[in-house]
Design a protein around this nucleic acid. Structure first.
Length: 300
DNA sequence: AAAACTAGCAACCGCCGGTCG
DNA sequence: GCGACCGGCGGTTGCTAGTTT
């Protein structure tokens, strides 16, 4: 190691051309080599690390493989409802800042979140025949999808009983237009009457205990990452990270129609009405996530 | 049963900013 | 101060398994 703790070795002088670098999927042997090397030497400069470990890979490739796949704390498998909600919430704040969003979902990689967004969310935008960045689609997410996620989370918590529902960790408090992540309880915050889905800005977010403009209690932020790693429950990587205690929101907003009345624009409402009138249209509008766009009475 | 299509995901690419010598 | 190098990031590609025709 050099003075900065970086890995150096004699083979640093080798040029990339001499290395005959490999590409494509990693083999089990390569994975083991990389894991063993990092276990013994730690992470360092990735190009040097790759050469010293005897891997015929670019440093970038090693870094990516480690961060997205081999890292012991990486979570794999289905994105939970709570994680979906968080992704939608954070994306509405930060856009395609995948790494920033990933920081708030312990164990999830930016690549995984990006893939989720592209394969699931953009699919729905395509079905709505609108751009993911359009106001129409954002409103649909904000006033239909996200509230439905909250409802599902609540329903799941109710169904599983409250005893196991004490470790819903949310890392930070966000007060978006309609979802407030506070002290483990995602809460719907309606847009003020007459206000048409105001844009979120960091300035109007709250990270301190307070009551927002709608009278919703907002609790101090807690460090989700720290809680995650300190919680023995989370040592099991296959275990769902989030558990929901309870979800509450105003009675007027207990169904998506409430959201519709609060600010979804006419075009988006028309689009959704068309779906409902058309019923099952033989495309895959009724798959696992499509419930999110449909009113409660149609929900299975 | 097989070809065509689709979805999901791992990995790569290219750009950019930071650091080092 | 400057060029080379490196890591991080967002966008894109290509492979594979599953589904549909």
């Amino acid at each position: 190691m050099d003075v900065q703790g970086r890995v150096v070795c004699n083979s640093d002088i080798q040029s990339e051309e001499e290395m005959d670098l490999r590409r494509g999927p990693w083999t089990v042997e390569e994975d083991l080599t990389l894991m063993n090397y990092i276990a013994n030497h730690g992470e360092g400069r990735w190009n040097s690390l790759s050469r010293c470990a005897g891997l015929k890979r670019t440093g970038k490739s090693c870094r990516l493989r480690w961060l997205n796949y081999l890292r012991p704390d990486v979570r794999r498998g289905n994105i939970t409802l709570e994680e979906q909600l968080l992704i939608l919430e954070l994306h509405s704040r930060w856009g395609n800042r995948w790494s920033k969003i990933a920081q708030h979902l312990p164990g999830r990689t930016d690549n995984e979140i990006k893939n989720y967004w592209r394969t699931r969310v953009q699919k729905h935008a395509k079905q709505l025949k609108c751009d993911v960045n359009s106001k129409q689609f954002k409103d649909t997410m904000r006033y239909l999808w996200m509230p439905r996620l909250v409802e599902r989370i609540q329903a799941a918590a109710t169904a599983s009983g409250s005893s196991a529902a004490t470790t819903y960790h949310h890392h930070h408090t966000t007060t978006n237009n309609n979802i407030s992540m506070s002290s483990g309880q995602p809460q719907i915050v309606p847009p003020p009457p007459g206000v048409h889905a105001p844009s979120f800005t960091p300035e109007n977010s709250s990270t301190a205990a307070s009551s927002d403009s709608f009278g919703t209690q907002v609790s101090p932020a807690s460090d989700l990452t720290a809680e995650y790693y300190n919680n023995p429950v989370n040592n099991n990587q296959n275990q769902d990270y989030y558990q929901v205690n309870q979800v509450s929101y105003p009675d007027s907003l207990t169904s998506p129609s409430g959201y519709l009345n609060h600010g979804l624009d006419f075009q988006a409402m028309e689009q959704i009405n068309q779906w409902l009138e058309a019923g099952d249209t033989s495309d895959n509008l009724w798959n696992d996530e499509d419930f999110l766009f449909l009113p409660q009475q149609f929900n299975m």
